[in-house]
Structure formats: structure tokens, C-alpha cells
Amino acid sequence: MMKRIVVGIKRVVDYNVRIRVKPDGSGVVLDGVKMSVNPFDEIALEEAIRIKERGLAEEVVVASVGPADCQAQLRTCLAMGADRALHVHSDTPTEPLTTARILLKLIEREQPFLVLLGKQAIDDDNGQTGQMLAALWQRPQATFASKIALADGKAQVTREVDAGLETLEVDLPAVVTADLRLNEPRYVKLPEIMKAKKKPLETLSAESLGITPRVHLRAVRVLAPPQRQKGMRVENAAELVAALKEKGLLAS
């Protein structure tokens, strides 16, 4: 069987966009906003491509659950170096558990030895899909990866945890989620974008995979965060230290 990596990606509001909350509290403004591949997912894909370039995988399949528009992000992934794309069409956002259930169906079909995802999407900041997928698949998980070494049907994964770095060994297949310092994704060049148009992109639906999306969480309202009061400027180190003393912030 072909040695395959499946990478899950999400179309999200671009990292550089300054989000605005709608005045009626129904959500954030998405009309006309630049959309991109979730940066952590891009890192996951870069890692998959590098693993393939090292000869440790034969095919990289990129998958996304989302509206028709997310095919643009899947094409970007194909231009980066993915071989094939799977688009599971959903016009409404899916919760992480539903996304994980859909990805599990794709995994059962594709039989990868490794599944890579970003550690979180920068829109909902949930950070759940990879772990949920690993649980449903009854396979190991290694989250927040900053290094992945593959050998003998196992992966040694270095993880960025609160205390520092931790290394786990997991049996393959496994789910690994990418942290920021796993790699620096490559830039896509124009010829690759042209070539990517010819790469296969298959569209599926959740229903065709036997999944009925469930909605558990209801967003009641979305508000802008409270703003901090504008502070004051001081002119030099002495004034700064005096101001901190006055506020009682230097006493131990």
C-alpha cells in the first residue's frame, strides 16, 4: 500500500486581518476579508511535503471541510506540493467533533500512516480537532509538535509544552498537530500554481461519507473585548520607576 500522509487544513481569516465585530453581536465581519490557509495547517502541510521529499512518504493528500470557496486554499496547498485534495463540502461551519468524524471517514478510505494538522485554527482558537480525531480513531496523538522523527513504524515527536520541551514516542499511524516552530513553510511560485490547477481535487459531502453534522454549541452573541484605557507616557527611566513605586508595583 502507498505510504500516505493526510493533512487537514482550514480556510480562515488571514493572520494579518484586524477583526471587526458586527455591531448587532451576531459575529465578526467576514465580507470582503482576505482568507488564507490556517497558518498552523500550512506548517503541518510543509512538514508532510518535507517527509515526502526525504523519501519517507509517497503521497500527500490534503483535506478540508468547508464551503466551496475553500477550494482556493486547497489549490494553494496543491501548489505547495500536496499531490491530491479532498474537499468535503459544508456551507455552515462544522464543530471540531464533526470535522473529526468527517476526517476519520477520509482516513478509513485513504489509510495514511500519518495524519498532520495544525494545533489550532486562528479563527475559533478551539484547538480540538486533532485530539478528537485521534480519540475517535483510537490512535496516538502528539500535539504541539516542534520536531518529528520517523523510523521503524514509530514517530518521535518533540512537543512544546508549558514546562519546556517533551519528547514522546508514538506507534504509527498517529495524529500529530503542528506548532509554530516545526518548520517555516515555503513560498509558492507561479509555475507551481499553474501546475496545481491540473492536480486532482475531489469534492465530497458529509452525507456521502455517512456523517450527519451535529451542532452542539450555539453562539448567543459575539462582542468586542473590553478596551484598555489609554495610558500615559513617561520621559525617562527615573520617571518610570517613580510611577511604578507610586502604584505600589515594586514593593515585594
Binding site: I19, D124, D125, L217, R218, V222, A224, P225
Partner: peptide, 14 residues
Amino acid sequence: PIYAGNAIVTVEVP
């Protein structure tokens, strides 16, 4: 918080 804390959502669980 969502969007890196640039919006705060109230969610209800059944």
C-alpha cells in the same frame, strides 16, 4: 475568546 481575543463569544451547550 475567539480570533486571538479580538472577539468574545457567548456559547450555549444543550
